[in-house]
């Protein structure tokens, strides 16, 4: 379970995230949406303990990440938007390294690594340096690494970017299965179709403020448009409708 209480982050005079209150329950997939620069990645970094909030608290399975960072972090599996991982390690070395720093027994790590290589079609590349991997392959290794220590909370920042359709489908199925097992899944995405189809609940952030939250049906009700899809709701809420004039202009 993830809980943020009045979470705020200021950079000088700029408020990147303002009084964010949200709760993601176990077994739930939460879609975190917002335009570029809305504060999604800052929020994710604060939830993961990579960034200290100016104000407010984050709790992971009831553990305050500021008070007990190691205990809270051991429950999280993070999949960042860019798969920056040690290019001079092989895929296998990287997964074993992750297992070691999360205290996973070597026998368990070997078994899980094999499952991950099998699942993501990386068996042939397992012993090659990560620097030779394509962006999609790196993304797969990062997803695999986030699962090695069997976390109860999985946080994903744009998880399907760079993945081929087959792998993207695999990731979606995987997240569903993980949520089915009672894991908490928090996912930021730009692909509204994914959010609409996969997420139990979505939150829309704009200029650092959570402007809407709920199931898709709840958002439709709020917008008083029972037929609206998430794209329409999103654009209405974030002011993206303004771009219509530009599109018309570009179309001539």
């Amino acid at each position: 379970m993830i809980e943020t209480i009045n979470l705020t982050k200021n950079y000088g005079n700029l408020t990147a995230v303002k009084n964010l209150n949200l709760t993601v329950n176990a077994g739930e997939i939460y879609g975190f949406l917002g335009p570029n620069g809305a504060g999604k990645t800052t929020t994710i970094k604060m939830i993961c303990g990579l960034l200290k909030p100016t104000k407010g608290r984050v709790k992971i399975d009831g553990i305050d990440i500021s008070e007990s960072p190691i205990e809270a972090k051991s429950k999280i599996g993070l999949i960042p938007d860019t798969p920056n991982i040690y290019p001079k390690l092989t895929g296998r070395e990287f997964l074993y390294f992750i297992a070691d720093i999360y205290d996973v027994q070597r026998e368990v790590a070997v078994k899980r690594a094999e499952e991950i290589f099998e699942m993501f079609d990386l068996k042939d590349k397992a012993d090659e340096l990560i620097e030779t991997y394509s962006h999609g392959m790196k993304q797969k290794i990062v997803i695999g690494a986030a699962l090695v220590h069997d976390p109860s909370v999985i946080i994903l920042d744009e998880p399907t970017v760079g993945l081929d359709p087959k792998s993207a489908k695999l990731v979606k199925d995987l997240l569903r299965a993980l949520a089915g097992k009672g894991k908490t899944v928090f996912m930021s995405t730009h692909i509204l179709e994914i959010a609409e189809r996969m997420c139990d609940k979505v939150g829309i952030i704009n200029e650092g403020t959570l402007i809407a939250e709920g199931t898709i049906d709840e958002l439709r009700k709020k917008a008083k448009d029972e037929t609206a899809d998430l794209e329409k709701l999103f654009l209405e809420l974030t002011g993206g409708e303004d771009t219509k004039d530009l599109v018309k202009f570009l179309e001539g």
């Binding site: 070691d100 205290d103 012993d127 620097e131 030779t132």
Partner: peptide, 27 residues
């Protein structure tokens, strides 16, 4: 990019160190 296979070898040189420190040093 040229792909070269590197066989995984367990590093026993730092066995005296705690597991996480050993993992970081080996890396």
């Amino acid at each position: 990019t040229e792909s070269v296979k590197i066989e995984y070898k367990e590093n026993r040189m730092f066995n005296v160190l705690p597991v996480r420190v050993r993992a970081l040093v080996s890396k």
